[in-house]
Nucleic acid binder design. Structure first.
Length: 274
DNA sequence: AGACGTACCTGACCGC
DNA sequence: TGCGGTCAGGTACGTC
């Protein structure tokens, strides 16, 4: 489920509802193994105030002043905010928050994680220290992207999904951005020109912004809708549309599906030039 | 150092 | 209805 736009939507939904509220109690499934071990000192945050809710890459950060509760949703994770609670399969963590909210972390495949780290050490933490630029920040520039691409001989699709270069561009939005930029996913990174970097940076931003706006339309109902609407309703131009006619082409070219680095890529060989 | 393959897991879906 | 096979939006690590 979760690419950057969905994490951003969850972040905004939580911000509106639980910022300035207090952690009242916690239930934790002790048995589950995640990418990283679950924190065993989590009860320490009971009584603490939620200062703010942030996002870095696809990580959701709940700032408790001296400590930060970090979530990653992997492939199948969900964060729900509800006003009543009934246990569901694969619920791993439930935090009861003042004002009558239940913050629920549910992840069937357990590719995600949640950890507690000290605010001071977050930038040096293994999860964060090597992350590249935020795609929606000003310092994700064409110059920066060009410099990074020059160093690599991997296909451009893999490059924009590499979180050491730019974070938050997952499999869906990699295909969508390249289609919008009219660049073939199989192009070798070091062959991408500066002008194409200008177009690509612009289109990555546009695609992510649009997706956030579409997620944002359900934001008002975040508590009720559990945050999982609005995202898959989003209209994609190529993702999952192999065999269909490309909407950008004038000559009825067909969208193709190929595999790159074990992941599906969707593109139009007519308007995305090799 | 860089590129590639693989591992981690469950659930949904398809064809038989 | 059930079974086996395949695929899924992420990330890190081992190996060459």
């Amino acid at each position: 489920m979760p690419e950057l736009p969905e994490i951003e939507t969850i972040k905004r939904g939580l911000e509106v509802n639980i910022q300035e509220h207090f952690v009242e109690s916690i239930w934790q499934n002790e048995c589950a193994n995640f990418r990283l071990p679950i924190p065993h000192n989590l009860l320490d945050i009971i009584g603490k105030k939620i200062i703010s809710v942030k996002r870095r890459a696809k990580y959701l950060l709940i700032d408790l002043d001296d400590e930060i509760l970090v979530f990653h949703l992997g492939m199948s994770g969900k964060i729900l905010l509800q006003q009543q609670y009934q246990q569901k399969k694969h619920d791993h963590l439930v935090i009861f928050i003042s004002g009558g909210y239940y913050l629920i972390f549910n992840d069937p495949r357990r590719f995600g994680l949640y950890i507690l780290i000290s605010s001071k050490s977050i930038d040096n933490h293994m999860l964060f220290s090597r992350l590249g630029k935020e795609p929606l920040e000003q310092d994700f520039t064409p110059d920066y992207l060009y410099l990074q691409l020059q160093k690599r001989k991997i296909p451009i699709k893999q490059a924009i999904m590499d979180n050491r270069i730019v974070v938050g561009v997952g499999n869906i939005y990699a295909s969508e951005s390249l289609h919008r930029a009219k660049i073939s996913p199989i192009r070798i990174s070091s062959n991408i020109g500066m002008e194409e970097c200008v177009i690509l940076v612009k289109n990555i931003r546009i695609i992510l912004d649009e997706a956030i706006k579409s997620g944002g339309s359900t934001l008002r109902d975040y508590v009720k809708s559990s945050g999982d609407k609005g995202y898959f309703q989003h209209h994609f131009a190529v993702y999952g549309k192999d065999g269909e006619i490309c909407g950008s082409c004038k000559n009825g070219a067909i969208i193709q599906k190929i595999t790159q680095a074990g992941r599906s890529s969707y593109f139009c060989a007519n308007c995305q030039i090799d």
